[in-house]
Amino acid sequence: GTLHLNGVTVKVPSLEKAIKAAKKFAKKYNLEVQVHGNTVHVH
């Protein structure tokens, strides 16, 4: 999967790991997580 954090793109081995990391990051910075196919966006 691919993880987008505020314009930074990170390749992640699995989508589940990407979503987990995204949710952790989003919670910390009070951001929103959106999943588009195998790409996770945090903004």
Rank of each mutant, 00 (worst) to 15 (best):
V8D: 03
P13W: 06
Q34R: 10
H36T: 12
V12S: 03
Q34A: 11
P13Y: 06
E16Y: 05
T9K: 10
L5A: 05
L15M: 08
G1F: 15
I19Y: 04
K11A: 08
V40C: 03
V33D: 00
S14C: 13
V35Q: 02
E32H: 12
L15S: 01
T9S: 11
H4T: 07
V33K: 00
K11H: 14
A22T: 03
V40L: 06
Y29G: 04
A26D: 01
A26V: 04
I19W: 04
H43T: 13
L31W: 08
V33S: 00
A21D: 06
G1N: 07
K23C: 14
V33G: 00
V33W: 05
Q34P: 00
H43D: 03
V12Y: 15
G7L: 07
F25T: 02
N6M: 15
K24S: 08
N30I: 04
E32Q: 10
V33M: 05
L31S: 01
L15D: 00
V10C: 15
S14L: 06
G1D: 09
A18L: 14
G1S: 06
E32F: 08
K23W: 07
Q34T: 15
L3H: 03
P13F: 04
F25H: 04
A26C: 02
E32N: 09
N6W: 15
A18I: 09
V42E: 02
L15Q: 00
L3D: 03
K17H: 10
T2P: 03
G1M: 08
V35I: 10
A26W: 09
G37H: 06
H4Q: 07
F25Y: 11
N6L: 15
T39E: 14
E32M: 11
A22W: 07
G37D: 05
A21L: 15
S14I: 06
N6Q: 08
V42N: 02
A22Q: 00
H36W: 06
V8I: 14
H41F: 14
G1T: 08
N30T: 04
K24F: 06
L15P: 01
K24W: 10
K27I: 05
V12A: 05
V35A: 03
K23T: 09
F25N: 03
K11P: 09
G7C: 15
